[in-house]
Simulated assay, not measured.
Amino acid sequence: MNKEVTFIRIEQEEEIAAAAKLAAEIWREHYVSLITREQIDYMLEKFQSVPAITEQIERGGYVYYLIRGEDADVGYMAVREADGKLFLSKFYIAKPYRGRGYASRADEYLERLCRERGLTAIWLTVNRDNASSIAVYTKKGFRTVREQAADIGNGFIMDDYVMEKEIPPLQ
C-alpha cells in the first residue's frame, strides 16, 4: 500500500458517530456467520453505539481511532492501557478495504504506541470461531495465551481466545 494511512484519535461527536456507523456495517456483514443477529444487535447497542463509545472514551480509559485511507474511513480501533500492556479492545476493517495492508499499518502504529509508552505487549480477545481474524493476528505475531468465556448479559456468552504479542523495546 503506497497511499497514506492516518489514525485519527476520536474525540468529536461526529467521529464517534462515524465509528458507530462503521461498527454496525462491519458487525452485520462479518459476524452473521459466527453469532446470531440478536447477539449482534445486542453487542452493537451495548458496546459499539454512540452512547457506549462515548462512555468508554469519557469514563473507561479507552482511546478510539478512525483508520483513514483512500479518502475514506476504512476502519477503527480502540485501545486501553492496563498493567503495562496495551489492550486492543476493538479492531475492525470494512470489507472493501480488507487485504489492502491496513491491518499491517495499524499493527505498526500499535507497536509504536507501545514502545513510546514503555508497554511490553499488545493483547486482545477474538471469537474462537473467527478463523479469518485469528489468521491475521497470528500472521502479525500474536499467539493464543488462553481461552475465556464471558457472560455479557441478555443470555449471551462471548467464547474467545486471548491472544498476545510481545513488544520488545528498541535497542
Rank of each mutant, 00 (worst) to 15 (best):
M1S: 10
E4H: 10
E11Q: 14
E14I: 05
E15D: 12
A18Q: 13
K21F: 11
W27D: 02
E29S: 13
Y31M: 12
V32F: 09
S33A: 15
S33Y: 08
L34N: 02
T36K: 07
I40N: 05
D41G: 09
Y42M: 12
Y42L: 13
L44W: 09
Q48P: 08
S49L: 06
V50T: 01
A52H: 06
T54A: 02
E55R: 06
I57N: 07
I57C: 06
I57Y: 03
E58C: 05
G60L: 04
Y62Q: 14
Y62W: 09
Y62G: 00
G69M: 01
G69T: 00
D71H: 15
D71F: 08
D73T: 01
D73S: 03
V74G: 00
G75K: 02
G75S: 04
V79T: 15
V79C: 08
V79F: 03
E81A: 09
A82C: 10
A82E: 15
A82H: 14
G84E: 02
G84C: 06
K85T: 13
F87V: 10
S89W: 03
K90G: 07
Y92W: 05
Y97S: 05
R98D: 11
A106P: 02
D107I: 03
E111F: 11
E111G: 10
E111V: 14
E116G: 00
E116H: 05
T120E: 14
A121E: 12
I122F: 01
L124Y: 00
S133Q: 08
I134D: 04
A135M: 06
K139M: 05
K140M: 12
G141Q: 10
R143F: 10
R143T: 15
V145R: 13
E147W: 12
E147V: 12
E147M: 14
A150W: 06
I152A: 06
G155M: 08
G155K: 02
I157R: 10
M158N: 09
D160V: 02
D160T: 06
E164A: 04
I167G: 00
